[in-house]
């Protein structure tokens, strides 16, 4: 089902997420890269190759939704899975409405993440 070589990029200012998520993504069979800010991600050469973006909502500087808008302006249609440690039930429907594939509250389970990724990267 999963495109095993798809690149999934993680953008989160929290270090433990940046450390832990790529390993899990690789266990799932993806290629993974982690960035500590939206700016760092935009400056990288991964934007065009990223097949799915796991994006923290609240970050200093450019926020997750800011990056989403920026990518839209650049016509980079990357499926986005938002993650956030701030459990506010009103956030999720808003994010989905604005085009996110999924919005997960930290801490989330590996199965929840895998489900979101399957939705983001349907079998071609």
């Amino acid at each position: 089902m999963i495109d095993t070589y798809a690149l999934v990029s993680v953008v989160d200012d929290d270090e433990s997420v940046r450390e832990s998520l790529p390993d899990l993504l690789m266990e799932f069979g993806f290629a993974a890269r982690a960035f500590s800010s939206a700016e760092e991600f935009l400056a990288s050469d991964c934007v065009g190759q990223t097949r799915c973006l796991i994006l923290d909502i609240a970050m200093p500087g450019m926020t997750g939704p800011d990056l989403q808008r920026e990518l839209k302006l650049r016509r980079q249609d990357i499926p986005i899975v938002f993650i956030t440690a701030h459990r506010d039930e009103t956030v999720r429907p808003r994010m989905l409405e604005q085009g996110a594939v999924e919005c997960l509250f930290k801490p989330f389970s590996d199965t929840a993440l895998l489900k979101a990724l399957n939705a983001a990267l349907p079998a071609s």
Binding site: D14, S16, V17, S20, A85, R87, K106, P107, F108, D110
Partner: peptide
């Protein structure tokens, strides 16, 4: 919020470890 951040790392790491 403060506690969920490290908890997220804990759960992800533990899942990866099991896998």
């Amino acid at each position: 919020h403060e506690v969920n951040q490290p908890l997220s790392g804990i759960i992800t790491n533990a899942s990866t470890c099991l896998r």
